[in-house]
Amino acid sequence: MKVTLRVWRQENETAQGRFEEYEADNLNPNMSFLEMLDVVNEKLTGDGKDPIAVAHDCREGICGTCSSMINGEPHGPENGVTTCQTYMRSFNDGDVITVEPFRAEAFPVLKDLITDRKAFDKIMQAGGFITARTGSCQDANALPIGKEVADLAMDAAACVGCGACVAACKNSSAMLFVSAKAGQLNLLPQGQPEKDTRVLNMVAAMDEAGFGNCTNQYECSAACPKEISEEFISKLNRDYLIASVRSSVKAKPTTMK
């Protein structure tokens, strides 16, 4: 099969950027979108041109590195998959496919389709962790956790941090990401000691990074390659409200501000 690509090309973070068209011919419909780009890049390199810079790593949908807006949808037309799991059979022969980087002020474009998503790392550093003792591991099953709770926490933990939620949201809100990362830990007993500070600090880091606000349209959930439910956003809102009230009335030790 054959497709025409309209790809965003941008030299570096400060460059203007523009769309350029490329023909991709002799494609196998069972190629992944990234393999198709490999073929195009192979040809560009052979012609002495700069290949299209595209973020990728594991190519099996679990690392969250690949990130492209394909025909107006993060990770392309299929539901519940990343760009690397999108196959050319999802397109028609002769299609014109527009490929853009994820757009958000918090995700500046570094080059072509690659965006800098370190804002997510900052949010994780603010509260996406638990405090555990090092050393030998705890006995298995020493900490009983209900099946439903474990399953729900696992749903949230499926987040690969790709940023499709931010890319799909018309406000560039990171609420689905933050809610999944905070929710996963807040649901489990291991996450309880830091629950309130986690929520408060992660939301503060999210606001600080310049993400937009949630308008409850759930585009994020529809675009999420791991199909994470907007229910976690509701839970984040609830946890945040409770944490705000609790932190403003609770007694604090003198060493703390």
Partner: peptide
């Protein structure tokens, strides 16, 4: 704030489920 969060928009963006 939402406007400021994405100054440069997409060439094409599909609405997935927003009413």
């Amino acid at each position: 704030e939402n406007r400021a969060a994405r100054k440069k928009g997409y060439q094409s963006q599909k609405t997935l489920r927003a009413s």
